[in-house]
Simulated assay, not measured.
Amino acid sequence: MEENITIEFVRNWIEKHHLTRKSYESVLTDALTNNGHYYIDNPYLRDWIRENTGKFRNILPYELNENQQIVLEWLKEMFTDTGDGYFSVIGYLANPTTREDEQDVAYIALSRLNNLEEIHVPAAFAE
Rank of each mutant, 00 (worst) to 15 (best):
G83K: 04
W13S: 07
I59C: 05
V121I: 09
L113C: 02
Y38D: 09
E127I: 07
E118N: 13
L75Y: 01
R46I: 04
I5H: 02
Y62R: 14
N65M: 07
G83N: 02
T53K: 15
G54H: 09
I119W: 02
L28V: 15
I7A: 08
Y39I: 12
G54T: 13
D81T: 13
R46P: 04
Q69C: 01
Y107A: 10
I59F: 06
D104R: 09
K55G: 05
P43V: 05
E25V: 12
E66R: 15
T29H: 14
G85S: 09
R57K: 15
T20P: 04
W13T: 08
G36H: 03
H18Y: 11
D104I: 02
E66S: 12
F56C: 06
R50L: 06
L19G: 03
P43N: 07
N42G: 05
N12D: 13
I119F: 08
K16D: 02
H18S: 14
I70L: 04
S26L: 13
L93K: 03
I90V: 14
I59D: 06
I108N: 06
H37A: 08
D101W: 14
D41P: 00
Q103H: 13
I108L: 10
S23G: 08
E3H: 06
R99E: 14
A106E: 00
L110C: 01
W13I: 01
E127G: 09
D104S: 12
Y44G: 06
L110R: 01
T82V: 04
L60G: 01
G83Q: 04
F9M: 10
Y86G: 08
L75S: 02
F56E: 03
H37C: 04
T6F: 03
N115Y: 05
H17K: 10
K22R: 14
I90E: 11
E73V: 08
R99I: 09
L64C: 04
G54S: 12
Y39E: 10
F79N: 11
H37W: 15
K76D: 02
I40G: 00
V121L: 07
D101L: 13
I5M: 02
D41S: 13
F87T: 13
F87R: 14
D30K: 12
T29C: 10
V121K: 00
T20M: 07
F125L: 07
A123Q: 11
E77W: 14
L19N: 02
E77D: 12
V71W: 00
N58S: 13
F79Q: 12
N115G: 07
Q68R: 03
L75K: 00
W74N: 03
R21S: 00
A126Y: 08
I49P: 00
R21T: 01
K22G: 09
T53P: 01
E117P: 01
V105Q: 14
N34M: 11
D101N: 15
A31T: 02
V27I: 15
E15Q: 10
L45P: 03
G91N: 11
F79P: 00
W13H: 13
G83A: 05
E117C: 01
R50Y: 00
V10A: 08
M1H: 10
I40L: 15
R46Q: 12
I40C: 00
Y44I: 04
I70V: 14
L45H: 07
T53M: 12
N42I: 01
H17L: 11
A124G: 03
N4R: 10
L32K: 13
R11S: 07
L110E: 01
T20G: 11
Y62M: 08
V10I: 14
V105S: 10
P43F: 05
N58H: 10
I49E: 05
I14L: 08
